Simulated assay, not measured.
Amino acid sequence: MTADPTYRGFALDAETALALLQWQAELGADEPCMDAAIDRYDLPDRAETPAAAPAAAPAPRRDEAEDHAARAEALAAGASTLAALAEAQEAFDAIEIRKGARNFCFADGKAGARVMVIGEAPGEEEDLQGRPFVGRAGQLLDRMFAAIGLARDTVDAERGLYITNVLPWRPPGNRRPEPAEIAAMLPFLRRHVELAQPEMLVLMGNTPCIAALNRQGILKLRGQWSEAFGLPTLPMTHPAYLLRTPLAKREAWGDLLSIAARLEAGPKP
């Protein structure tokens, strides 16, 4: 719909003109025009008037992205302990969201635990505390795994739980991590798994499935054992989804029982 700001025969002051424009916008007008409407089918071809075409935004430099990836790989590979990996990842400055986050959220729980949970990214509460999964979704996660005898605060690695995220910084407005951000953090995540040495991985939601399995569609993937980083891996729906969709807790309980059964059976020789 178009809006015509001219009214023949009337002398408009600034306040009246502004009020009329606001009124037309409320009615749905989204484009101003002059006295006569423009026939857009009769406009010259853009190819004939290249000077009038807006300049295209510069494409990201591929060599720069490759440099960042190579640096991330080198930093991750050079870390021989979890503490060294955390220091290297926190210092990696090629990801913009770190500038807006309050805290770096590396991991929580028992290092060396048999089960390692990988989530998406910190939320508001996690960003404040500098620990993953401590908000409402994290509290539900704790209750879920407590039901099968696992906890992040235990000293017993057999019954421990180790928790991290694909991204250690909170994305603006809790938006989903972008593919470039996931790719930038992947070398650190891979090394994180190697140093933590769990027996199995639990991928909470779509983002960790994209990072670890290069697949998405958590409602189809959940409950199906796969392999990531050389380990048995089970995708599960994120606790935040379960808070919004309580009926899905029944399926999540089945996934937890599957984890418990695999732990009971022990690692395959």
Score class of each variant (00 low, 15 high):
Y7K: 11
A14C: 09
A14Q: 15
E15S: 03
T16F: 14
T16A: 15
A19I: 01
A25K: 07
E26T: 11
E26C: 08
G28F: 06
P32S: 00
M34R: 14
M34F: 15
M34H: 14
D35C: 13
A37G: 14
A37I: 06
D45R: 15
E48C: 13
A51F: 10
A53M: 13
P54W: 05
P58L: 02
P60I: 02
P60G: 08
R61K: 05
R61T: 01
R62T: 01
D63Q: 07
D63M: 04
A65N: 08
E66K: 12
D67P: 02
A70C: 02
G78H: 04
A79S: 12
S80I: 04
T81N: 12
T81Q: 15
A83R: 09
A84H: 08
A86K: 10
E87C: 06
E90P: 05
F92R: 10
A94Q: 07
I95G: 00
I97W: 13
R102K: 14
N103H: 15
C105L: 01
A107Q: 10
G109T: 01
R114G: 04
V115M: 10
I118D: 10
I118H: 10
G119Y: 01
A121F: 00
P122L: 11
G123E: 12
G123M: 07
G123H: 13
G135H: 00
Q139E: 15
G149K: 05
A151S: 15
A151G: 04
T154D: 14
E158R: 02
G160I: 00
V166K: 05
L167K: 02
P168T: 03
P168R: 11
E178N: 10
A180C: 07
A184L: 09
A184C: 06
M185L: 10
L189W: 03
Q197P: 09
M200S: 02
M200C: 08
L201H: 09
V202Q: 09
A212E: 02
A212R: 01
L213S: 12
N214P: 09
N214A: 15
R215C: 00
Q224G: 03
W225T: 04
S226N: 11
P235Q: 01
A240W: 00
R244M: 13
R244P: 07
P246F: 04
A248M: 13
R250F: 08
E251I: 05
A252S: 08
G254M: 08
L256A: 05
L257F: 11
E264Y: 11
A265E: 13
G266N: 01
P267Y: 05
